[in-house]
Design a binder for these strands. Structure first.
Lengths: 356, 356
DNA sequence: CTGAAAGCGCTTACAG
DNA sequence: CTGAAAGCGCTTACAG
């Protein structure tokens, strides 16, 4: 078998120059390994000379730990996800883990991607805006690979998840709009069978119903700008258009606002109130000033990474469903109720049941 | 040495069940390898039973090809970059390559990240909004790892790059604003020593100067929303505020627009024209309708991937500086000149020198 | 077409 | 603390 003599420097070459064994080189680059300062110095000197870097791939093969976390993500046009990705990459990096990125098909088919992820023997998997079939969940469990669903629930309870309390937040949004004395409600739904959509829709609609509201329309935005535009036009073209809209995420809420203002000449919040979910970047821009239920990216990501690490290190995968606390951030896209809005850390929040 | 008996299935185990050699298993999963249909079937059957997936890490060690491309990216709040990332991940995936993501420090220090990337023996590197020291460039060259700077130039000419023609586009923007009969100009600069900022500033300022314009202010936005806000306030608070602003990217341009409208009550484009660079998502939203020099993400990414693949496969790293053609997309954030704006594919473009 | 075997670049028990 | 050696899970010349 021919072997090329150039290419990246190996520990063997360093050993030769340093006049020590290859094991000594390895130990020098293994934190906590038993090596004398003198040997260590010799090795480091030779390594520096040759420009040696340990081969992480070879190390992985030995340790059965790749220090790679596979991440599947979609919806990059919804700023929530890039923000999550940035935070994830940074937090993993701090722990000396690395992030192998996969873009999910919008049709939610993860099988092909999954195969790729598994081939790289990742130590953990984060699925953002993707759900996992029972078969694949069980395969991960069997293989000992922790999986965290980010912003999606696992209805089977096999893998872990990190979410905000979608249903509670949606209930609060309904109460906020009711307190603002709105009359005609609409919900712009995300993909119908996504867990967060189900929870948000249920919380919103059930709360309105329980207060005797009958005028509730549901249209499908499906987390897509085009479809949301169409849905919004449909709403605003109807004889009695809604005066209060909750969109299942900010990205759709912003689209609804633009259609309302620029195609139908509606004033926000005078003619129409709009509320979103995520509290992502553009929602805070003055052009929108969107009132929105927050999903605290840093906390959610920290929880995700902590969970992953715990499971990787313990080699014991006990699925956990984590819920991170969000808040209803009140800005100017929705008429404010007379009471219940408080100021905190420079933000306005809706906290009606706050008792002193 | 103890070896655990559980964990991922190995080719050895498949071989045993299938009643063939381990080599036969390997060949079954190596496209183009010499294997009889009968053996192949036996192997596939056993593999299916056991849930076998080839170990990409082990394969990498043999082939000296990880099929991983390292990507360093920052500025996730500027939608241009998430869009680039999504396209990159998708295009690489189509070629059965994978994307290891690193978040660049805003201070542009890539050394620590670089060490990580190299340890994973990536087959190629894409640096978005990051530049590379001569030392590291040469190390990559020596190691035979192709590097593409994305949206940054390599002043040393050691590594490749993919850009639009920043200087030409900036000249065109100056001409557009001159043709619109603006009087007082300002440039909101990105990080002063970033190659794209240098080119955009040079093209803009030199063109204005050559036409006798003296009233040109330059303020630093440094690709940062906070700093851009401050810079914008400074401009609008001055006795003779500008009536035409070119911001080095869309993200800063949008911030400038918000400050102008909501803090200073300026009407756009009546009181003020704003132009950006990137033509990224939010620029097309009706609330902004930003006139902007486009950077065609798909073409730039395709060019990047093609370049990378060529260099990986040829094992010959000849640096190339690619320039992708953009256009000045005319919307409503800047007063239009009387002539020079043409319609094409549903977009308005500025093409003054177009001769029939 | 097939199998035995060497080797990829490391880690890590083992014996000293 | 150190080195020789086995082994991680594959690929691939080699000989048949």
């Amino acid at each position: 078998m021919k072997r090329k003599t150039f290419g990246p420097v190996t520990s063997q070459q360093v050993a030769q120059i340093a006049g020590v064994s290859q094991s000594a080189v390895s130990r020098t680059f293994t934190p906590g390994a038993s090596i004398s300062p003198a040997t260590r110095e010799k090795v480091l000197k030779a390594a520096r000379e040759l420009g040696y870097r340990p081969n992480a791939i070879a190390r992985s093969l030995n340790t059965a730990r790749s220090r790679i976390v596979g991440v599947v993500m979609s919806y990059f046009d919804n700023q929530f996800y890039p923000q999550v990705l940035e935070a994830l990459a940074q937090k993993l990096d701090e722990l000396n883990y690395h992030l192998l990125l996969f873009v999910g098909d919008r049709d939610g088919n993860v099988d092909r991607i999954f195969d790729q992820i598994m081939q790289y023997r990742v130590d953990g998997i984060v699925l953002a805006s993707v759900s996992l079939s029972i078969e694949l969940s069980e395969e991960c469990l069997a293989a000992g690979i922790p999986v965290v669903l980010f912003n999606r629930d696992d209805e089977n309870g096999i893998v872990s998840s990190v979410n905000t309390d979608n249903e509670a937040a949606a209930r609060q949004i309904a109460e906020f709009l009711l307190a603002g004395e709105h009359q005609r409600f609409a919900y712009v739904a995300g993909i119908a069978d996504s867990s967060v959509n189900i929870a948000r829709q249920a919380g919103f609609v059930s709360t309105l119903r329980s207060k005797g509201v009958e005028d509730i329309r549901v249209v499908q935005g499906n987390y897509d700008a085009q479809q949301t535009s169409r849905a919004a036009r449909e709403l605003f073209s109807s004889p009695q258009p809604p005066d209060a809209i909750f969109a299942a995420n900010d990205h759709m809420a912003l689209t609804v606002m633009d259609i309302a203002r620029y195609e139908f000449g509606l004033r926000i919040p005078d003619d129409l109130s709009v509320i979103g979910y995520d509290d992502t970047g553009p929602s805070g821009w003055p052009s929108y000033a969107l009132t929105s239920a927050s999903q605290p990216v840093d906390e959610m990501v920290s929880a995700t990474v902590a969970l992953l690490m715990k499971q990787i290190e313990s080699e014991n995968i006990e699925p956990e469903q984590l819920v991170v606390k969000g808040a209803l951030i009140v800005r100017h896209s929705a008429r404010r109720p007379r009471s219940g809005v408080i100021e905190k850390d420079g933000l306005s929040l809706f906290q009606p049941q706050e008792v002193e």
